[in-house]
């Protein structure tokens, strides 16, 4: 691989700009962690000490804990479902050609280009017109619709890199379609499945624009709870929530890096 270093005044300028951009990128993430340990309700600089009050407040708030339960329950339902639906669909989309494939692909991926608010409001409108109580089912359905394209994109990218001749060889040696799939295709799809799971899980936990339409008081999820809290209270409790989510994302990145290298996994 050809690497050309950034040299001279031009190289220094580019590197400086990149450094400033990286600081800009990290600033809110680092700041929110720092702010969560603030001893005061309002931001003060330099910090006048250290306090766990907001973390305790977050973990002892029944509103946030219920929301966390709902969020994780929903993400744990949506993630495996999007894999079970996404794996066969990506396989069909990548490996075979059939009539209307391009149109079907466009339809399945449409929630990627249509703004989340429009998807959320459309689903709410249809479900309530059908007289359905939204509940956990509606929330999971909405999130599945939204998350499925992410899963299919990650899985298709992985499938495109596999050699179909290995599957043909297995078939020629007498393996049935199911055995070929489970013994040959699935093991090679490991990195795609991992990337898809992480993306779907994170998107489902973080999504606000669909969740705000489809969650009610009994199915309130973390982003919606955080938004309502920010509107009503002015203290760093949401910073404590953010810290928990950031720690989780660092663990996920470390996990992806260990299994497949995140440079590869994030290039979707």
């Amino acid at each position: 691989m050809f690497r050309r270093d950034l040299e001279g005044r031009f190289g220094i300028t580019v590197s400086l700009l990149a450094a400033v951009a990286t600081v800009f990128l990290l600033l809110p993430v680092l700041f929110v962690v720092l702010h969560s340990f603030s001893p005061t309700r309002y931001f003060q600089w330099p910090p006048q000490g250290f306090s766990l009050e907001w973390h305790l407040n977050f973990y002892s708030s029944s509103m946030f804990m219920d929301a966390a339960k709902n969020s994780f329950l929903m993400a744990l339902i949506v993630t495996p479902l999007s894999l079970v639906i996404g794996i066969p669909a990506s396989y069909a989309l990548v490996r075979s050609s059939f009539k209307g494939k391009a149109v079907i692909q466009q339809i399945i991926l449409s929630p990627l280009i249509i703004p989340g608010v429009v998807t959320g409001v459309s689903l709410l409108s249809l479900l309530s017109a059908a007289g359905m109580n939204i509940g956990l089912f509606g929330l999971c359905l909405g999130m599945l619709v939204f998350a499925l394209p992410f899963a299919i994109r990650a899985l298709s990218a992985n499938l495109l890199g596999l050699d179909p001749r290995i599957e043909e060889a297995a078939r020629n040696l007498g393996a049935g379609p199911f055995r070929t799939f489970f013994a040959i295709v699935l093991p090679q799809l490991k990195s795609g499945i991992l990337a898809a799971s992480v993306f779907v899980f994170v998107e489902a936990l973080d999504n606000f624009s669909i969740a705000v339409f489809l969650s009610n008081d009994s199915t309130k999820v973390l982003p919606v709870a955080a938004y309502q809290y920010i509107k009503d209270f002015d203290d760093p409790t949401v910073a404590a929530m953010a810290t928990a989510l950031i720690v989780m994302s660092i663990i996920l990145v470390a996990f992806l890096e260990k299994v497949m290298g995140f440079q590869k996994s994030l290039r979707l």
Partner: peptide, 30 residues
């Protein structure tokens, strides 16, 4: 290092970042 910064920021979510900017950019923010 830059990739790591991007990955952590990307996965830390929208609500987290919106809240953080709200405090950072206030009249008496950092």
């Amino acid at each position: 290092l830059i990739m790591l910064a991007i990955a952590v920021t990307f996965l830390s979510g929208g609500v987290t970042r919106a809240y953080s900017w709200l405090i950072l950019l206030g009249n008496r923010g950092l």
